[in-house]
Design a protein around this nucleic acid. Sequence first.
RNA 1: CGGGGAGUGGCUCAGCCUGGUAGAGCACCUGGUUCGGGACCAGGGGGUCGGAGGUUCGAAUCCUCUCUCCCCGACCA
Length: 584
Amino acid sequence: MHRWSRLFIPTLREAPADAEVASHKFLLRSGYIRQLGAGIYSYLFLGQRSINKIVDIVRQEMDTIGQEFLLPTIHPAELWEESGRWTGMGQNMFRLQDRKGTWLCLGMTHEEVMTDLARKELRSYKQLPQIWYQIQTKFRDEPRPKAGLLRVRQFIMKDSYSFDIDAAGLDVSYTKHDQVYRNIFTRCGLSFVAVEADSGAMGGSQSQEFMVYTDAGEDLIVSCPNGDYAANLEKATSQLAPITELAPTGDGKPELVHTPGKASIADVAEFFQISPAQDIKTVAYMAEVRDGKKARWEPVVAFLRGDHSVNETKLAGLVKANELRPMVAEELEKYLSGPAGYLGPIGLKVAKSLHDGDVSVILDKSLEGRENMVAGANKLDYHFRNVTPGRDFTWTIAADIRNALEGEGCPVCGSPLKIGKAVEVGHIFKLGQRYTEGMGSRVLDPNGKEVIPTMGCYGIGIERILTASIEQNNDANGFWLPPAIAPFDVVVTITNASDQNLLAAGTGVAEALEAAGFDVLLDDRDERAGVKFKDADLVGIPYRINVGKKTAEGKVEMVTRGTASSEDIAIAEVANVMRVKTGR
RNA sequence: CGGGGAGUGGCUCAGCCUGGUAGAGCACCUGGUUCGGGACCAGGGGGUCGGAGGUUCGAAUCCUCUCUCCCCGACCA
């Protein structure tokens, strides 16, 4: 029996000034967490109980497809040097030295450790497939921790890794995770959506994120209201409405026009009396390309419609860049011979193929087939009109490199797309052979031939499930969690604990609920009823039973936090009503 | 890393500009009255004013350096 009077549940009447998003404020006010440093938090009694419930669900579901391990937090640097990520992870990795001066790091993910196990232990196709998982604290030195538990430097992650003999096997492991993840998030009571995700520079063929819509989220999700398409903005595509072509002027060839001071798309469009969609936007980058162990910077110039924006994730993936940064003035002069504001496609030394030494020119597909557009002339205060892609300039690659916009057509059905903010709670990812190949994992197939196992990796952010749930379920007075992940199913509030009859009745109700299998918090504190009601509303427990006024008549009041509805029920019926409400 | 903001009792904040014995509300302790939506009265405890250096007879307050935290951006398997 958990008696509130004996517990440490430090609720706050006011939120600390540091907290901005709802989940951060309420996690602090409800006494779930306390901050130790930037992105570093202690989980107190209520917080830990909720985390434990989430972990239990994750473990139960994962055990249906995999085996739980617990891997080291501290990893030798050599292991990460083998995979190339000791330098590749950059500043996000916490590093330390032991007394001998040997470099180590705190695990930010466990591909290396898992692959090390695999290469040492797995010898035969008969041992495959394997799905190994763990629930472990991860450390990432985020450049900017924020929003309470949403982006932190230390957090609990369920991460799993599959090893299969071939791509068909990986498909199976991946699909199993997809289903188990859906089970997990459903059991946690989250309203979530699975979206296509960018596979990142690490390669890999297929990737899906599990997202929860909330304004506190950091990702943008493009989705079709009909439900037949959903993708991260980093990956999303869309159908465009046709554009009416501009009529050519003069002899129809590119015509130089003096456009003094017209350096923005809006200014140019106004000057030429056209819409921004008739203008060619030029965006010039330097891309860091890794060639073996060496990295070098190459020029990349992107052309898009004036009303579109560059999707740097797509562009970086296309040109195989680790990093993109805008060109500085000297680089613009060197590669385009023009100043910012007047850049354009005509007269560039266009690379025939990527990385051949000339400027990689990437044409957004929306410009293919367009005619007589307006573009910068690579000369201060001048633009061209009558610019037609293909006739007047060439490119290295034409591809989709733009961000989809709200209202554009769904790529499947054409309906207007919506864009919303969301938090990523899970990610499943086909890794392929990047680690197994590089780190020398080999097994024999049925023909006795050596093959490289193929991997998948799959993550779930435990705290993010809690955070996302709070973001979905809160009001001015606090929040309410689904019973499956709440620290307690129900709080029994004795309105006047100094009344021995009420105390006895409340204790009896709590005992009956516990006997029925519910997690019960008995609020027996010697506080005024108002204080206890406020606290109960605050701390995320989905149901409250008031033992007070009507108890002499054999009744108590049951309050459902999420709907604020209440009903009087007979004391003897309390457990049954809870069973009905929770479906247990 | 760039830009902005903030460090004064557990929490929210005032005081700083214009230097002169550190304050309020909430929280906490004691006593009393109250007791179904964050009660009231009386008394009380608790603060190196983030840190270091400097200016000054005197620094929370002015100057220099520094640390930490928050927000926007960059970043992000």
